[in-house]
């Protein structure tokens, strides 16, 4: 069990390292360095900075040193919670991101929960009643869910909300709570706004999970232990729910590992259409404005959170599957 856990954590750390390098590349790729961009911006606004000031900034960010030193400095500062300054907002990156990161995760988790709650019963039903009319309908809807990119679905929903309901169905808060401090009422308001983003983000994943659950369960239903359970005198419903469904749940749980990055990815672009206050719109604005510290930090933090999400799914899997718990493999 410990070997398995160590392996998964090792992979997580490796992933974070790769993300950090990629984030750093994103920060470094645009021509010119941070300070020259900063100076150019100051000049645009009419104020100037002295050469000495510029030089001290360069030293602070280690821009006079080789790239790998700069990278090490950047990582070291990040670990201490210093993400640098946002050029675009003229404020520390941490301030700019604020609770947007938490909201991103809330939306992501809500979408994954939605996916599970919907996919589990549909998957079971489609497998147990294979080739029934409902099975065909679900299969077709599943394909449709896979085929429509989430941002297009968001667009269409927004359009119908606007035209039919004459309401803006986007956002995560009602206007009166948007800038209010956190309270129970605000949390409730958030909960009421969550279903639409969860639906939009979760639909493709639901379609995938239904197919996974259906295929796994079809395999499991043919296993002899189902017959054993029936031969003991269990009713069909109880036998199926207790045994094959339980076994088919394992691959289902491991699906978070790919679902998580997928939903986080989707949330970036869907947030833009639904105007959700997540890191998505922030990232886009930062990229368009070449505010690279902000953009790189967001990519980095999203990567870290995804790794944490995957680790949580590994823990759930360990709890579910005794084979992993005892032998560290399946």
């Amino acid at each position: 069990m410990l070997t398995y856990l160590a392996q998964r954590i090792g992979l997580g750390i490796l992933t974070i390292w790769v993300v950090s390098v990629l984030s750093f590349v994103i920060i470094q790729l645009p021509p010119g360095d941070y300070v020259s961009t900063y100076l150019a911006q100051l000049a645009e606004q009419g104020s100037t900075a002295s050469a000495a000031e510029a030089e001290s900034l360069r030293v602070e960010y280690g821009l006079d040193q080789p790239v790998y030193v700069q990278y090490a400095k950047w990582v070291f500062q990040m670990v201490q919670g210093n993400f640098g300054m946002s050029l675009d907002w003229k404020r520390p990156v941490a301030d700019v991101i604020g609770d947007r990161l938490a909201l991103t995760m809330i939306v992501t988790v809500a979408a994954i929960l939605f996916t599970w709650i919907l996919a589990l019963p549909i998957g079971i039903y489609s497998a147990v009643r294979q080739y029934s009319v409902a099975d065909y309908i679900f299969t077709f809807l599943g394909f449709l869910g896979l085929a429509v990119p989430s941002f297009l679905l968001a667009l269409v929903l927004m359009y119908f909300g606007f035209v039919v309901l004459n309401a803006n169905i986007g956002g995560l808060f009602s206007p009166e709570y948007a800038d209010a401090p956190w309270s129970l009422a605000k949390a409730w308001d958030l909960a009421q706004h969550l279903p639409i983003p969860a639906l939009v983000l979760g639909l493709a994943g639901t379609a995938q999970l239904v197919r996974i659950m259906r295929a796994n369960l079809l395999d499991e239903l043919r296993k002899p232990y189902v017959i054993t359970a029936l031969a003991k005198g269990l009713s069909e419903r109880r036998a199926i729910l207790k045994y094959p469904v339980r076994v088919a749940l394992n691959p289902f749980a491991s699906s978070i590992a790919f679902l998580f990055p997928q939903v986080v990815s989707g949330s970036i672009i869907v947030s833009l259409v639904l105007s959700l206050p997540t890191v998505g719109p922030l990232l886009l604005r930062a990229l368009l404005a070449q505010d690279m510290f902000l953009a790189g930090t967001i990519v980095m933090l999203i990567g870290v959170l995804t790794v944490i999400g995957i680790l949580v799914s590994d823990l759930i899997l360990m709890w579910l599957d005794p084979r992993i718990r005892l032998y560290g493999r399946r």
Binding site: L11, T15, V18, V19, L22, S23, I26, A257, F258, F260, P261, Q262, V264, S265, G266, I268, I269, L283, L284, L287, A295, G296, I298, V299, I302, G303, T306, V307, I310
Partner: peptide
């Protein structure tokens, strides 16, 4: 597989 691809592509 475990990196969210869209933010990366965007970057």
């Amino acid at each position: 597989f475990s990196i969210p691809s869209i933010p990366l592509w965007m970057g």
